[in-house]
Structures are given as C-alpha cells and as structure tokens.
Measured scan of single mutants.
Amino acid sequence: VKVFRALYTFEPRTPDELYFEEGDIIYITDMSDTNWWKGTSKGRTGLIPSNYVAEQ
C-alpha cells in the first residue's frame, strides 16, 4: 500500500470510480494499470486517475 495526496478534486463518471477532493489522502492498493489505480479514501474504495495524485 502506498500513500498519495489528491492534487485535484475528482468527480466519478462511473460507479467504479472514487470521488475525492483536493488534499485528500488516498491509500493505493493496485497500480497494475498505468492510468487508473485502485485506492481507498474516507472508507470508500474505487478507481482513481493516476495523474490526479502525488506520492507522499
């Protein structure tokens, strides 16, 4: 598990995607895809765009 911080707010387009706000901490559990990672924030899990976060 790696810890990342959201650089921007992300509004999901599908139920599989995770909503998060700029500054949120996201725990990444799967980075197997280059563009979409699986992450958890505020008790919810979903896909996030990798270019919206920076490693802490």
Rank of each mutant, 00 (worst) to 15 (best):
I48A: 03
E11S: 13
F20W: 01
K2V: 10
N35H: 14
K38V: 15
T9P: 07
L18T: 01
S32W: 06
T9S: 12
R44M: 11
I28D: 00
K38H: 13
E17L: 08
Y27D: 05
Y19R: 13
L47R: 09
W36G: 01
L47V: 07
E22S: 10
Y52F: 12
S41W: 05
L7P: 00
Y27M: 10
T9N: 11
N35A: 12
S50A: 14
E22V: 14
Y19E: 09
E17C: 09
Y19V: 04
V53K: 01
A6S: 03
L18W: 01
T45R: 08
F10P: 01
Y19W: 09
G46T: 00
V53D: 02
T45W: 14
D24A: 06
E22N: 06
A54L: 13
E17Y: 12
L7W: 03
E17Q: 14
G46L: 01
W37H: 02
T14F: 14
F4K: 03
I28A: 02
F20G: 00
E21S: 09
F4M: 12
V53Y: 02
K2Q: 09
T45C: 10
R44D: 04
G46P: 00
D24F: 04
K2A: 08
L7T: 05
E21K: 10
E21Q: 12
R5L: 13
A54T: 15
G46C: 03
F20M: 09
V53L: 14
F4T: 06
Y52E: 02
M31N: 07
D33G: 08
K42N: 14
S50L: 04
T40C: 15
R44W: 05
L18Y: 01
K42W: 06
I25R: 04
Y27V: 10
V1L: 13
R5W: 10
N35G: 12
L7N: 04
A54V: 15
I26G: 00
I48T: 02
I25L: 14
E22G: 06
G43V: 02
R5D: 03
E22Y: 08
L7D: 02
N51H: 14
Y27W: 10
D24E: 07
V53F: 07
I48Q: 00
I26N: 00
D33M: 06
P12T: 05
T45N: 09
V3S: 07
Y27N: 05
R5H: 10
L7I: 11
T29M: 09
K38R: 14
Y19T: 06
S50R: 11
P12R: 03
F4L: 05
G39A: 09
T29N: 08
V53Q: 01
G39N: 01
Q56I: 15
L47P: 01
